[in-house]
C-alpha cells in the first residue's frame, strides 16, 4: 500500500462478516475482469480519437479507476439508477450501454447516446438506468437522493448509486444531500472516488480531514467506509452490502474508494503537478494487471483471460468503426427537446 492515506482505514465495511468471506462465483469474477477491460480499452480508444481530432471538446478519462465502476456495475440490479459525473464513460458503460453510443457521443455523431446534444460530460441512457452524467461538481448528489425517494415512494426497491470525485466533498450540495438522505433514510449509495486530486490540486491540501468522504460520514450518522478502490472485488463486495442495506430500508451509505487516475484531469491536463514517485507507485497498483494475476492464481486459465481481452478489444474496435461510419446529427435537432412537446417554442 503506497498511499499513506490508505494505510489506516477508518473502519471495516458495515454488515455481517460472512458476506465478506463468501467466495465470489467464477462467472462473476470473469465479469469483473471483462468489465474493467472494456472500460480500459474504451477509454484508451477515446484518447486515441482525441489525438486524431475525432473527439472534440473535453473529455475526462477513468484510466486507472476502472475497478470502482466495474465493481458496482456488476453488483447493481438492472433497474437501479446510476448518477455519475463528467468523468462518467465508465459508469455508463458498466450498465450495459453500447460502446458505439458512447464513442459516437464523444465524436458528435448521430449514433451518440444523445445524438451529440450532451457530449462527453452528459452521457445518459435512461433505458439502462443511467440517469445522467452531471458536470457541475456535486450537483447530482441531491438529484440521486430524489430518485431514491421516488423509488421508495413507488415501492420498487430500486437503489440510486451516485458516483463522484473527492473534489465534490467540499461543496455544499454534498453535505445537503448526505444530511437529507440520512434523515429520510433513502435508498441511495454515495460513492466517492478519491483519486487524490480535485482537478490540478491535491485534495489533502484543501480539505480539513484526511479522508474527504469517510471522515465526514459520522457528521451524518453514517458508518465511515474506506476501501481500496483499485481492488475490484473489494468494491464489488462493499457494493453488494450497501445495495442490500438500501433495499432493506436501512438508508444510505457513503463509501470512499481510494484510487488514482493514470492521466490528467481532462484532455487539456498533462498532470505535471503529480510527483513521479507517486505516479509510479500507483501505476504499480494498476487494478487490471493485479486482478489478472489474482485470477490466474485462483486457477483461471491464461487462455480464458486472453480470450476475454481479445473480445473486449474487438468490441471497442467494432464500436469505433460504427461510430466513425455514423453521420453527424442533422442540425434541426439543435432546436428540439427543450420541452416535452419536442420543440423549443416560447411564444405563440
Amino acid at each position: 500500500m503506497t498511499n499513506p492515506q490508505a494505510s489506516k482505514p477508518k473502519a471495516e465495511a458495515p454488515g455481517p462478516k460472512e458476506d465478506i468471506a463468501e467466495a465470489i462465483a467464477p462467472a462473476t469474477r470473469l465479469k469483473l475482469f471483462r468489465s474493467q477491460l472494456e472500460i480500459r480499452y474504451l477509454e484508451k480508444r477515446a484518447y486515441d480519437l482525441f489525438l486524431q481530432n475525432l473527439v472534440k471538446g473535453t473529455s475526462h478519462l477513468a484510466l486507472g479507476q476502472e475497478a470502482v465502476a466495474a465493481g458496482f456495475g456488476v453488483a447493481m440490479r438492472s433497474d437501479d439508477y446510476t448518477f455519475c459525473t463528467y468523468r462518467g464513460h465508465a459508469h455508463t458503460l458498466v450498465r450495459g450501454v453500447s460502446m458505439a453510443g458512447i464513442l459516437g457521443e464523444l465524436m458528435g455523431r448521430d449514433c451518440g447516446l444523445t445524438r451529440g446534444k450532451g457530449g462527453s460530460m452528459h452521457l445518459t441512457s435512461v433505458e439502462h438506468g443511467v440517469m445522467g452524467s452531471y458536470a457541475i461538481v456535486g450537483a447530482h448528489l441531491p438529484i440521486a437522493a430524489g430518485a431514491a425517494w421516488s423509488a421508495r415512494y413507488r415501492g420498487t426497491e430500486q437503489v440510486a448509486v451516485c458516483f463522484f470525485g473527492d473534489g465534490a466533498t467540499n461543496i455544499g450540495a454534498f453535505h445537503e444531500a448526505l444530511n437529507l438522505a440520512a434523515v429520510w433514510k433513502l435508498p441511495v449509495v454515495f460513492v466517492c472516488e478519491n483519486n487524490l486530486y480535485m482537478e490540478y490540486t491535491s485534495i489533502e491540501t484543501v480539505t480539513a480531514v484526511a479522508h474527504p468522504a469517510a471522515d465526514r460520514a459520522s457528521a451524518y450518522g453514517l458508518e465511515p467506509v474506506l476501501i481500496d478502490g483499485n481492488d475490484v472485488e473489494a468494491v464489488y463486495r462493499i457494493a453488494l452490502q450497501a445495495l442490500a442495506k438500501a433495499r432493506r430500508g436501512e438508508g444510505p451509505s457513503l463509501i470512499e474508494a481510494q484510487t488514482y487516475r493514470h492521466g490528467g484531469h481532462s484532455r487539456a491536463d498533462p498532470a505535471k503537478y503529480r510527483p513521479r514517485k507517486e505516479v509510479d507507485a500507483w501505476l504499480a497498483r494498476d487494478p487490471i494487471p493485479s486482478y489478472r494475476q489474482r485470477l490466474l492464481a485462483l486457477g483461471f486459465s491464461e487462455s480464458s483471460l486472453a480470450e476475454i481481452e481479445q473480445e473486449a478489444q474487438r468490441a471497442v474496435d467494432q464500436a469505433t468503426e460504427q461510430a466513425k461510419a455514423s453521420p453527424v446529427p442533422p442540425t434541426d435537432i439543435a432546436g428540439r427537446d427543450v420541452w416535452a412537446s419536442g420543440g423549443s417554442e416560447w411564444r405563440n
Partner: peptide, 27 residues
Amino acid sequence: DRVRDTPISEQAILGVAMGAAMTGLRP
C-alpha cells in the same frame, strides 16, 4: 410521505424534486 418538511437546504430541495420528477413523481 407526501408532504415533507426539509432542512434549510435549497439545493437538496430542488435536487430531490428533480430526481423524483425524472423517475416518475410530480413534485
